[in-house]
Design a protein around this nucleic acid. Structure first.
Length: 575
RNA sequence: AGUCCGGUGGUGUAAUGGUAGCACAAGGCCCUUUGGAGGCUUUAGUCAAGGUUCAAAUCCUUGCCGGACUACCA
C-alpha cells in the first residue's frame, strides 16, 4: 500500500517536472535548435484569412504557434493576415481575430502583419519569375484551364501560351496590373510540369485579376497573388523558421518549396503539417458556420452554441480551459475526432477552482415551513468556493417561504431518489433538516403548487450540534429575497456525433439539435447575484456553471447562460 | 483510378529496436451538508499476414482500412 503510494507520488513529481508536453513538431524544432539553426531564434506564425470568425480549431493552431514561441527563449510568433482574396475579406473579421487571439491570452504586440503589405514585393518576385522564364501569362479561361489540367490519373496539356517570350509576358503582366484586362481574362502561371502527379504542380496560377476593393489596399491593385505564391514568400520575408499548417496543405508543400527554390529570398522557411481539430457533435468549417449564421439557425457568429471563440466566450468558457484543452489533445499527423467531453472536462476543471457558488432555482416550486415563524428571517453563512478558502463566505436570507427545484421533489420516488418526497427528510443546504408533510395541488390542473414542510430547529447548519444524517441536500432561495432571472440552457448544436460526415446522404443541417436552447424565464436567484456584471461566471450549486450574458443581460433583467452542467450521477442513473 | 499522407483500448495520445503507459469516457467502491469536488479501483489496445532481429507498435514487403488532392479559395 505505502509502496504503491510512493510510486504514484513519484510519477506525479516526474510529470510535474517534465517541460511542456512534446509532439513531433516540437521535436523537430528542438533538433533544429541543437544544430544551431538561426542562433536559436525560432519564428512561427498564425496566418488566418480574415473571412470569418476564429473557432476552437484555430485555437489549436494558435496554441501551437504561440505556445512554441513562449517555450523558446528569443522566439516570436507573428499574427499574419492572409488577405489575398479581396472578395471574401473584411475588416470586421480582422478585428474579431485580433480580439480572440488576445482573449486566449497570447501577445502578438508589434508582430501584426498582412500579406497585403507585401503586394509590391510579391509583384517584383513575380516579375523575376517571368524574367527567368519560370512564369507566363495565360489566356485560357477558367474552364479551359480546368480542362487542360487533366485529372490525377491523366496528365495535363500545356497551355498554348506557355512558350510566350519573356518580353511579351512582361508586357502582358504589366497590362494585367494596369487594369487593361477584365476579371478572368488572363492569369499569370508558374511554368512547372503539366504531367506532374501532383495537380498543384501543373502550372498553377499565381496571379489573377480581381477588380475588387481590398480592405486594406483599396483600389491600388487589380491583380492579386494566389495563396501558394503568397504564403511561402510571406514566410520568407518575415523570417519564419517553421511554417505550421494543417494536413490538407501537405500536397502544396512541393509548390511551397518550388517557389522558394526559384527565387532569391531573405530566408528559407520550412512547412510542417499537422492534423486539424475535429470535435464530436460540432461543425468546424468556416463555410458551414457561415451557413448556420446566414440561415438563422443560430443568432450569429457569437451565438453561445457556436464553436467560435466569440461563441465559447459568450457561453462562459474560460481562455485557460481552452488552452489546457489544446495542450492535452496533442499534435499529430493523423485525422481524429476529439470527444466534446474532453473540452467540457477541462472547462469544469478550471471553473471548479475559480467559480463562486450561488444558489439558484431554475424551475421553482414553493415550499412553506409551517412551523417557522411568519416574520422571521435568518442569515445563513454560505461558503463561496469550497475549493478556494480565500473566496470567503456570504450570508443567505432564510425565511418561512422558500423556492426549491421542481425536480427535487417526487410524489412517488424510486428507491435511489435521495431528495424530497412525502414523509421524507432532506437537508436544505446551509439551513435545516426538513420533512415534507403535505402536497398542495391545483385542483384543475393537478400541478403541484406548494409543499408544506416542517423544519427541525435543532439541525441548523453550522450550529455544531450533533445531528442525524440525511441522505440528500437540496438548494433553495427565499421567496421574498430572491431575484428573478431568465436562464438560457444551452446544449450541443448537433445530435449526430459527426454531423459533417455527409457520406450517408444527409446534410449537416439535418442534424441540428432542436433542443440546443431552452429558455427558462421564471428562475429565482439568491440576492447576492444582484448587480452581477456581464460575463461574470458562477456555479449554481448542484446544477452547473453559468455566466451573465454579455449582450442581452441588463441590471433590471438578468439573462444568464448555462455554460456546462455539473457532472450528474443521478442523471446517469436515470438513463 | 493515380499520387501523397496516415493507422496504438470506446475516444485523444505516449513509448524514437528493449517492461505497451497517461488522460477522457464507461463501470464499481470510499468520502461528502453540491448525486459537485476528491480518493481508490475495474474493463479495454499496437489494422492483417509474412519477413529481418536475441528482441518489433517501432525496420522491410504485401494486403486492408481511413484521409488529402482534380478553385483564377485559403
Amino acid at each position: 500500500m505505502s509502496n504503491r503510494q510512493a510510486n504514484t507520488e513519484a510519477s506525479k513529481r516526474e510529470a510535474d517536472s517534465k517541460p511542456e508536453s512534446s509532439d513531433f513538431i516540437r521535436e523537430i524544432i528542438s533538433k533544429d535548435l541543437q544544430q544551431g539553426m538561426d542562433e536559436g531564434k525560432i519564428v512561427t506564425r498564425f496566418p488566418p484569412e480574415p473571412n470569418g470568425y476564429l473557432h476552437i480549431g484555430h485555437a489549436k493552431s494558435i496554441c501551437l504557434n504561440f505556445g512554441i514561441s513562449e517555450e523558446n527563449t528569443g522566439a516570436v510568433c507573428h499574427l499574419r493576415f492572409d488577405d489575398t482574396n479581396p472578395a471574401k475579406e473584411e475588416t470586421e473579421y480582422v478585428d474579431s481575430i485580433k480580439e480572440d487571439v488576445k482573449w486566449l491570452g497570447f501577445e502578438f504586440g508589434e508582430k501584426e502583419f498582412y500579406a497585403s503589405d507585401y503586394f509590391d514585393r510579391l509583384h517584383e518576385y513575380a516579375v523575376q519569375l517571368i524574367r527567368d522564364g519560370k512564369a507566363f501569362v495565360c489566356d485560357l479561361t477558367k474552364a479551359e484551364i480546368a480542362e487542360y489540367r487533366g485529372t490525377p490519373t491523366v496528365p495535363g496539356k500545356n497551355s498554348p501560351n506557355r512558350e510566350r517570350s519573356v518580353e511579351e509576358n512582361l508586357t502582358l503582366f504589366d497590362k494585367m496590373k494596369n487594369g487593361e484586362f477584365a476579371d478572368g481574362e488572363k492569369t499569370l502561371r508558374a511554368k512547372i510540369d503539366m504531367s506532374s502527379p501532383n495537380m498543384h504542380m501543373r502550372d498553377p496560377a499565381i496571379y489573377r485579376i480581381r477588380k475588387t476593393l481590398h480592405h486594406r489596399t483599396g483600389d491600388k491593385w487589380v491583380i492579386y497573388p494566389m495563396y501558394d505564391f503568397t504564403h511561402c514568400l510571406s514566410d520568407a520575408i518575415e523570417g519564419i523558421t517553421h511554417s505550421l499548417c494543417t494536413l490538407e496543405f501537405e500536397v502544396h508543400r512541393p509548390l511551397y518549396d518550388w517557389v522558394l527554390d526559384h527565387l532569391s529570398t531573405p530566408s528559407r522557411p520550412r512547412q510542417i503539417e499537422f492534423a486539424r481539430l475535429n470535435l464530436s457533435y460540432t461543425a468546424l468549417s468556416k463555410r458551414k458556420l457561415l451557413q448556420l449564421v446566414e440561415n438563422g439557425d443560430v443568432s450569429g457568429w457569437n451565438d453561445p452554441r457556436m464553436p467560435t471563440l466569440s461563441g465559447l466566450r459568450r457561453r462562459g468558457y474560460t481562455p485557460e480551459s481552452i488552452r489546457k484543452f489544446c495542450t492535452q489533445i496533442g499534435v499529430t499527423k493523423f485525422n481524429s475526432v476529439t470527444d466534446l467531453a474532453r473540452l467540457e472536462h477541462s472547462l469544469r476543471e478550471d471553473l471548479n477552482k475559480s467559480a463562486h457558488r450561488v444558489m439558484a432555482v431554475l424551475k421553482p416550486v414553493k415550499l412553506i415551513l409551517t412551523n417557522y415563524p411568519e416574520d422571521q428571517v435568518e442569515e445563513m453563512e454560505a461558503v463561496n468556493n469550497p475549493e478556494d478558502p480565500d473566496a470567503g463566505t456570504r450570508l443567505l436570507p432564510f425565511s418561512r417561504e422558500l423556492f426549491i427545484e421542481r425536480d427535487d421533489f417526487m410524489e412517488d420516488p424510486p428507491k435511489k431518489f435521495f431528495r424530497l418526497a412525502p414523509g421524507r427528510e432532506v437537508r436544505l443546504r446551509y439551513g435545516y433538516i426538513i420533512q415534507c408533510n403535505a402536497v398542495v395541488k391545483n385542483p384543475d390542473t393537478g400541478e403541484i403548487e406548494e409543499l408544506h414542510c416542517t423544519y427541525d430547529p435543532e439541525t441548523k447548519s453550522g450550529s455544531g450540534k450533533p445531528t442525524r444524517k440525511v441522505k440528500g441536500t437540496i438548494h433553495w432561495v427565499s421567496v421574498q429575497h430572491s431575484i428573478p432571472a431568465e436562464v438560457r440552457l444551452y446544449d450541443r448544436l448537433f445530435t449526430k456525433e459527426n454531423p459533417t460526415d455527409e457520406k450517408d446522404g444527409t446534410v449537416f443541417t439535418e442534424h441540428l439539435n432542436s433542443d440546443s436552447l431552452a429558455i427558462l424565464s421564471k428562475c429565482r436567484i439568491e440576492p447576492s447575484m444582484k448587480g452581477a456584471l456581464p460575463g461574470a461566471r458562477f456555479q449554481f450549486e448542484r446544477i452547473g456553471y453559468f455566466c451573465v450574458d454579455s449582450i442581452d443581460s441588463t441590471p433590471d433583467q438578468l439573462v444568464i447562460n448555462r455554460t456546462v452542467t455539473l457532472r450528474d450521477a443521478w442523471a446517469k442513473r436515470k438513463r
